[in-house]
């Protein structure tokens, strides 16, 4: 499936079906990520069971500590 992630069209392998799997796919720890799908923010407790679909516009922001 294809999703628009942070403004870029990206092909995702078939096993990536939920937000949790998506973050795992990009090696992003779920505790430090904020995820928005089609302009709706996804609460952290819903990552495991929130499905992603072909054509979704997904924004992923991850926190960093440097400065």
């Amino acid at each position: 499936m294809y999703c628009i992630i942070n403004g870029e069209t990206i092909h995702l392998p078939a096993h990536v079906r939920t937000v949790a799997q998506l973050l795992h796919h990009f090696h992003i720890h779920k505790k430090i990520a904020i995820v928005e799908i089609n302009m709706h923010i996804v609460p952290k407790e819903d990552y495991e069971h929130t499905a992603i679909a072909d054509g979704d516009r997904i924004e992923i922001v991850h926190f960093v500590g440097g400065g």
């Binding site: 500590g65 440097g66 400065g67």
Partner: peptide
């Protein structure tokens, strides 16, 4: 509210 806990082991400068 956004982070819940202090993240350990993330990238640093």
């Amino acid at each position: 509210c956004l982070l819940e806990e202090v993240p350990l082991g993330i990238a640093t400068c």
